[in-house]
Design a protein around this nucleic acid. Structure first.
Lengths: 344, 344
DNA sequence: TCAAAAAGTTAAAGCGTTTAAACTTTTGTG
DNA sequence: CACAAAAGTTTAAACGCTTTAACTTTTTGA
């Protein structure tokens, strides 16, 4: 039933080690014999056993992925990219979802030496894993982690720059009254976006019209914008720390009979599915899932290869994507800072 | 460095078999000795090697998941649930994404006996995998497959019923002019939703106001609704075969100054993230990701256990979720079919 | 009390590869 | 053409666990 390397050896009249060499296309096998082996393999429908290989080589060819949720469009994109990149290098992805509720379920994936390395993709602090991975000497990389670890290779988005770019865009359109709806203060990413935002305004000699805090969700945007409208005051533009928040803001405007971007310019953050699905399509700061994934894989493979770049934190730059939700304020046409290309 | 079962045996002064028995909590071990072993394991930080186990037992404890995309909110939910359910049974998930472009990349996951079983979660026909899985005698289950396979265990949503329920809801609210925006005709799921929709109208003595076809995307909804509005005619209600389509319809209405549900009632299909994020929150037909996942895992584990339910196709029922995007038509208050509970 | 049954233990044989070391054949050089 | 070096091939020993068969100790009951 099961066909092993011995069967191939017998069939081809050679030894198992020759067969092994052919399989791993190692040198030291005569072309003629190589063909014999390949022939025998085909005839028998042979495929090497991953388990036996893992045991003999001490490597599994599997990368473990621990993540907090799959239901996040940015994570989706990252996971898909990671999967693709790993496949190119002959690795598979095995995943566990650690919801926080199932207390360290992620642990299971590396406990039995199932994996050659681990990617921790999580929005919240997960130092629990770090300790163990470090101690067990399992190569790992932290992605989009909120608590920057000095000891680990990690990939993070330059959120500060994202916030800065968003603000610059609005300023250059001619806006003077610019608000910010930030995420939860315990999210480092949110605080960094805010910091970049404030810096840009500062450089332009502006004060934030107002800074509000809430969740990364639609409700927050809706609530905040509604309260402004109810109070009868509105900024000229707003930078939301998340596309979902932007959606809430735009919805509140629509429901109040206001038009985006005519009455209010809105910039979001993420640029996943939602941004293009909205009308008006959202001007937003793109989190480059492909780059994040690529760098994460690079870092991990380097670590597996034994290159110990301790604490190498890679930053990838987000990118402003201008669509339809931003425009110059109605009164003033764009001021001297306006760049041609930024009108959608 | 590496601590094996022998180390534990030496440390505890017992044989490896005894240790093995403790690990697999098999009988025939004195309580006292069991404790000794557990103690030794803890002291040494021992964990059995998955590879050695797989090799010796002929099972891996890993389930392969082949999917077409991760960037689909329903799939997300299903994958997460599958992961959870499998974890309960001591299995891990290894995944490959077959985009169609990378020609059968899914194959890699089961070729080297890496997995004990495979779940194929894919919206398009994937009979290529079926042939091979069948031939290699690897247990598998098809989930949400568009081409029903008579030979394989599979889990599908009762789309016909979903379409029927959606239509019933609108009819019972008093609507008489009901349109449908369907998905691509090559999607079996879409055709079934349409069939259920038409049947419900038929039973009520109604004709569809109009049936349009397009993609499962926002553009389609926007385009179709805009064309109705431009032509100056609008149904009283519309059933969209997908929440994204519903979003497009609602957007088109908002942009034309029409209100949902006052001027148009809208029902979607899916009930993932989007449905609750929208204003008005979407009345929609929920695809029960949790049930789908649970049944899929049940079926697969049964197959792995050797129970060959050939061609057992499990259907799960979708469920209408009434929110804010549907209401009785303005003229007539709800007719006699209205059920109390269905007002949101 | 003693044989039989039950409980627990030990040694040994796989599981399907890889790899180090040894052996054999081919190649190249003076 | 001989002989060392290089290339090709094979034997044997891991890799870390499970499982079977055989052996030893403890318990049971007439």
């Amino acid at each position: 039933m099961k066909v092993s390397i011995f069967d191939v050896a017998r069939q081809s009249g050679l030894s198992v080690v020759t067969v092994s060499r052919v399989i791993n296309n190692a040198p030291s096998v005569r072309a003629k014999n190589r063909d014999k082996v390949l022939q025998a393999m085909k005839e028998l429908g042979y495929h090497p056993s991953a388990a036996a290989r893992s045991l003999a080589r001490g490597r599994t060819g599997i990368i473990g992925l621990i993540l907090a949720t799959l239901q996040d469009s940015l994570f989706d994109a990252i996971v898909k990219e990671i999967s693709d990149r790993l496949a190119e290098h002959g690795y598979f992805l095995a995943l566990t979802v650690d919801t926080g509720a199932n207390g360290g379920a992620g642990r299971l994936i590396y406990e039995e030496d199932r994996v050659d390395g681990v990617i921790v993709l999580s929005p919240m602090q997960e130092d629990g894993y770090e300790q163990e991975l470090l101690q067990k000497r399992i190569p790992y990389v932290l992605v989009d982690n909120q608590q920057p670890s000095p000891t680990a290779p990690s990939v993070v988005v330059n959120n500060d720059k994202g916030g800065y770019e968003a603000a610059r865009h609005l300023i250059s359109l001619g806006h003077r009254h610019i608000a910010h709806v930030a995420g939860p203060p315990e999210f480092l990413s949110s605080m960094e976006r805010e910091r970049g935002f404030v810096r840009a305004l500062d450089e332009a000699g502006l004060e934030p019209w107002r800074i509000e805090r809430g969740g990364f969700d639609t409700e927050t945007g809706y609530r905040v914008a509604s309260s402004w409208i109810a109070a009868g005051e509105l900024p000229g533009a707003v930078f939301a720390a998340d596309d979902h928040v932007a959606l809430g803001i735009i919805d509140a405007c629509k429901n109040a009979g206001l038009r985006v971007p005519r009455d209010l310019s809105v910039v979001g953050f993420d640029d996943q599915f939602l941004a293009t699905a909205l009308r008006p399509a959202l001007t937003t700061v793109r989190q480059p899932a492909d780059q994040i994934a690529r760098r994460a894989v690079e870092l991990l493979l380097a670590a597996i290869g034994g290159e110990t770049h301790e604490g190498s934190a890679v930053q990838v730059d987000p990118e402003l994507v201008v669509r339809e939700s931003t425009a110059p304020p109605p009164a003033a046409e764009a001021n001297d800072l306006t760049k041609e290309g930024e009108r959608s």
